[in-house]
Design a protein around this nucleic acid. Structure first.
Lengths: 334, 334
DNA sequence: ACATTAAAGTAAAACGTTTTACTAATTCAA
DNA sequence: TTGAATTAGTAAAACGTTTTACTTTAATGT
C-alpha cells in the first residue's frame, strides 16, 4: 500500500499543496490561511493518519533532525548508558540519534563519518580515536556542529566534554599510597587516546609526587582487540610474578578481567592488596568486598554534550568552543 | 561549504548526470559506457571526495538502507549486547541501524514506529510491548519487513526470534527442587509481555509437576518503572518475612537489586539458600559465590534476526513467517 | 470612486538522485 | 548499399517536500 503524500491530502481537501504544507508547518496564520481551511485540512490529516515523508523534507530543507553518535562500543556499559541519556535528551528536542560503534578501528571510524555525512546528519557527537583528526576537521570546516566527548583530540579545534582523567587517576594512586601501598601496578590499554594517556600520566605523577620510583614492569598495556582469555593470562602473570600490593585498572572491562584473575588464583582483596577500577560497573558494587571505583559523571557528561550541541544547532553562527572538564569521583568501597 | 553533487561531477567530467549515475551504481557496463569515460569519471569522483547524497537517493528509490531497532532500553546489557551484534551484522550487508528505547511506554513505542515510518526505514526489528499490536499490524500490512524478538505478540502474524523462556524457567525451578528446596520465590515484573509471562508459567508448572503447592505470597511482581530503592525495599520485605530457600529472578536487573538486598541484610547464598538469575551479567560470574543464571543465546538470537530480515529484504514476495525458539542455557555456578 | 493595502491562496522551482525512453553515430549482415 | 542492430550516451520525469513569488478578490482610506 502506497503511503499518503501531501498531494493526496491537498486533493481531498480541495486546496493546494502549498496550503497543506503551510498548515503542517504551523505557518498557516502567518500566511493568512483561513481558520475554516485550517480546520478542514487538519481534520483530514488526522483521519487519514498522514505523516510527512521526512526524507523528502530533509532533501528540501537540508537538515535531517538526526544526530550522529560515534562511540567505541555500544555494548560497553559506559557508552550504552551515555547513549541512553543522550538519546533521551535529544528525543525531547525532536532529534533522533543514529549511533555506531567504531570498535577502535580507524577504518571503520572514517567510514562511519562518511556514512553520516552522506546521510546529512545535523550534528556529530564523537568519542574519537587517533587517526581521524583530518576527517573531523573537514566536518568542522564544512560547518557541521561537532562535539567530542570522553576523549579529546588536542589538535582538533572544537568543543569537548569529558571527565578529569588526570586528577582522577592521580587521586586514586594517592589513596593507595595513603593506605601505605608501595608496589602499585597499572593495567591499561595500548590504544593511544588522550583519556587513557592522562590516566597513565596521573599514575606516574602521583608516584613521583610521593617519591616512589616508577617501575615500568608494573605497567601492563593490554592490546585492545585481543581475546579476553589472553588478557586474563597477562594479568595473571603480572599478579603472580611481581609483588604488587595495589592495582589501578584503567577501564571497567579490564577491571572485570582482573577480578576474574583474582578469583581464579584465589587472591583476596583486603588490607594487603587493594584495587581501584576506572568507570563504575554494577559488578563492582556487588562484589565482596566492594570494589572502589572512579565514577564518571555520566549524567553530567550527557547533559553538557547535548546542551552544547543544541546550542550550536540553534545558533546561526559558530559558537565559541568550550572545553568542559568534569571532575570524576573516587568511590571508596568497603 | 556546499557539498558536491552529482551535477558538479558531471560538469567536471563533461558528461551527463545520467552517465555519472550509471557509473556510481555499477551499471556502466550494462548501459554501454566506454571504459575511458568510466575511468575519467571515477578518477574525478575519487579526487573530489564526492559522496552521493543518501537522502536524495532514498527519496528516489524509496529505500533508506536503514533498519529500525526498537528495544526497551539500550542501557540494559542484554539489549546493548544484542544491539551491538545486530549492528555488526547489518553493517556488513550495507545496512545501518537506528535504535530507540521505548522504556516500556506504549506511547513512546507508537511514536517511535511513526518516526521510523516517516523516515522510511527498510525494515523493523522490534522487541515489542503489549498495546502496539495494531501499529505493528499496519506496518506488516503496508508490506514492511517486521521481525519481533525477545518478546512475542501472539496475535501479530510475523516472524519471531527468542529464547525458550518457559522451559528455561521450568528447568531452573526443577534444579532448585532437585537440590531439595521447598519454598521457592519468584521475583518478576508486572509488565505484561509474553516472555515474562512464560517465565512465570514455567515457574508454576515446575512446582505443580513436583507436587509443590503454589503460594502466591512467594511471587513478587515489581512495578516496572519504579525507583530501584523501592524495589530493594520490596525484595527485602519478601526475604525477611517469608521463609524462602530459593529465588528465581526473572530479569538481570531484578537479580542485581536482589543481590544488593542480600549484601545489605547479610544473607549468604549457600546450601540453605539458592539464587538463579535470568539473563547473564558480568556481575554474576564475579560474585562470590558465582550466581547461577539462565543464559540467553545472544549471538544466535542476533544471527537469526538478521538472517530473517535480510532474507525478507532481498525477496520480492513476502516470505513465510518463522518462529525461531532457541533453547536457553542454565549455567550453574559454584 | 479610485488607488492602496490586506486577505486568502496558489503555481512552480528547487533539493539531488535514479531511471525510462530516447537520439545519433557506427557497425554489421545480406 | 541499405536497413537493422549495436554502441555510447543524454534529456527529462519522478520521488515528496518547502518556499518564493505571484494572483485574485475584498476591504479600506481619502
Amino acid at each position: 500500500m502506497k503511503s499518503l503524500s501531501i498531494k493526496d491530502i491537498a486533493v481531498k481537501a480541495n486546496v493546494s499543496i502549498t496550503t497543506v504544507s503551510f498548515i503542517i508547518n504551523g505557518k498557516a496564520k502567518e500566511k493568512s490561511i483561513s481558520e475554516a481551511v485550517i480546520e478542514k485540512v487538519k481534520k483530514i490529516i488526522e483521519e487519514s493518519g498522514y505523516k510527512p515523508n521526512q526524507i523528502a523534507r530533509s532533501l528540501r530543507t537540508g537538515n535531517s533532525n538526526i544526530i550522529g553518535l560515534i562511540i567505541e562500543d555500544i555494548s560497553n556499559s559506559f557508552f550504552s548508558r551515555i547513549a541512553r541519556l543522550i538519546e533521551d535528551k535529544a528525543y525531547k528536542k525532536g532529534y533522533k540519534i543514529i549511533y555506531s560503534s567504531t570498535e577502535n578501528s580507524v577504518e571503520k571510524a572514517k567510514e562511519l563519518i562518511n556514512m553520516f555525512k552522506s546521510r546529512k546528519v545535523d550534528a556529530y557527537i564523537i568519542s574519537p580515536i587517533k587517526g581521524i583528526e583530518e576527517d573531523i576537521k573537514m566536518l568542522i570546516d564544512d560547518g557541521n556542529p561537532v562535539i567530542l566527548f570522553d576523549r579529546n583530540l588536542p589538535d582538533v579545534n572544537t568543543s569537548y566534554v569529558g571527565a578529569d582523567h588526570f586528577n582522577a587517576s592521580h587521586q586514586s594512586i594517592q589513596s593507595f599510597i595513603d593506605q601505605g601501598k608501595k608496589n602499585i601496578a597499572l593495567v591499561t590499554t595500548d590504544i593511544n587516546v588522550e583519556q587513557i594517556v592522562e590516566r597513565y600520566e596521573g599514575y606516574k605523577k602521583a608516584l613521583e609526587d610521593n617519591g616512589i620510583k616508577y617501575d615500568e614492569s608494573l605497567v601492563l598495556k593490554i592490546h585492545f582487540n585481543q581475546e579476553e582469555s589472553e588478557t586474563i593470562e597477562q594479568i595473571k602473570v603480572l599478579l603472580e610474578n611481581k609483588k604488587v600490593d595495589a592495582v589501578l585498572f584503567a577501564t571497567n572491562y579490564l577491571a572485570i578481567s582482573g577480578l576474574k584473575v583474582l578469583k581464579k588464583i584465589n587472591k583476596k582483596i583486603g588490607d594487603d592488596f587493594a584495587v581501584i577500577a576506572y568507570d563504575d560497573h554494577e559488578a563492582f558494587e556487588l562484589h565482596t568486598p566492594g570494589i572502589s571505583t572512579v565514577q564518571q559523571p555520566l549524567e553530567e557528561i550527557a547533559e553538557n554534550v547535548i546542551k552544547l550541541i543544541l546550542k550550536q544547532l540553534s545558533s546561526k553562527t559558530k559558537i565559541e568552543n568550550q572545553q568542559v572538564i568534569i571532575p570524576a569521583r573516587l568511590i571508596i568501597r568497603d
